[in-house]
Simulated assay, not measured.
Amino acid sequence: MLFTILFTATLIPLLLQFPAFDPIALNLGPLAIRWYALAYIGGIVLGWLYARRIIRTERLWGGPAPMTTLDFDDFILWVTLGIILGGRIGYVLFYNFDFFLAHPLQMLELWNGGMSFHGGFLGCVAAVLAFGYRRKIPVLSLGDVTCAVGPIGLLLGRLANFVNGELWGRHADPSLPWAMVFPTGGPLPRHPSQLYEAGLEGILLFIILAIAIRAGALKRSGLIIGIFATGYGLARITGEFFREPDPQLGFLWGGLTMGMILSVPMIVAGLAFIGAALRRRNNEAS
């Protein structure tokens, strides 16, 4: 280990150094707006615009969509609350329960970071179910639209993780051209795993879902939900092989990480949704 550190130290001038990003994007007097907050805002706004386009395009549904753009406009507040509350609760329960049990008031300090995608996803599910039943909108179709736009927020969120210099990757071979030394990650080069996840969970998953939508997936309600859940689970597990696990948890059973464990039920549920959707007739009510 000592030899590795000494050898790496001689290569540090040749390695990529983490850019000196300022995590604060804008200062408006006493109010500091961080890139991470802008990522959430941007993901919601861009996802909302893309969802409206999907809903308006009748050929994707084989006729009028089972909801209107005005319905989705009203849904935005519901899903935003679901993402924030679910993401925070998920982080508290899955990643740092003992700490928050001892410091319960810090659960409210969202500005100090700490969000879980899997918790946010469950929050979205709750928002879809509640809003769908309240408005009498098919919940599977509403879920399909929500999942179709999800990778936009994932992409921006992972880029914000990179800007913040957080959630960096495991140690990488110094000869890897894009190995990077992170200020808070010690002297050894690491994988920029935030960018790997941005590519897999954001760009690749968005392309897969867009192709499926163009191929008529919205005509089988629940199919996009299944593809998203399966695709995200596989992408997250792949990314976890390069990502340093949270220090308060470390590696769990058999070298697994919490992100891997939480992604397995998503894959199982996603495959079940895909199977059910393929057996369902086109445009069958849900």
Rank of each mutant, 00 (worst) to 15 (best):
R135S: 03
I137Y: 01
L122I: 15
V128N: 04
G186R: 13
N164C: 10
T184M: 14
D173I: 05
T146K: 02
G120D: 08
L176R: 02
P174C: 12
E166R: 08
L176Q: 08
L156P: 08
P151V: 06
P183F: 10
G165Y: 09
T184P: 00
F182I: 12
N164R: 10
G119K: 08
A126R: 00
P174T: 05
L108K: 05
L159C: 14
A172Y: 03
P177G: 09
A172M: 09
W168A: 03
N161V: 11
L159Q: 05
L110R: 06
L155H: 04
A126I: 15
G113A: 06
F117L: 08
S116A: 15
F162N: 09
A160D: 09
R135H: 02
M115I: 14
A179F: 10
N112D: 13
M115A: 03
T146D: 05
F162P: 10
G186K: 06
L122G: 00
W178L: 14
G157W: 07
L140Q: 11
R135W: 00
L108T: 12
L154M: 15
G169S: 12
I152C: 07
G185K: 14
L176K: 01
T146Q: 10
M107G: 06
P138W: 10
P177Y: 06
L156K: 06
L108G: 04
G123A: 06
A179Y: 01
L159D: 07
G123R: 04
R158H: 11
S116D: 01
H171S: 13
A160L: 04
G113M: 07
R134K: 14
V181L: 11
L110N: 11
G157P: 07
L156I: 06
A130V: 14
G143H: 09
W178G: 07
N164I: 09
L176Y: 13
M115V: 12
K136Y: 00
P183T: 07
G123L: 04
P187L: 11
R134S: 13
N112Y: 01
F117R: 01
N161T: 10
R158N: 03
M107P: 02
A179I: 09
L108D: 03
F121H: 01
M107K: 09
W178D: 08
G119N: 06
S175M: 14
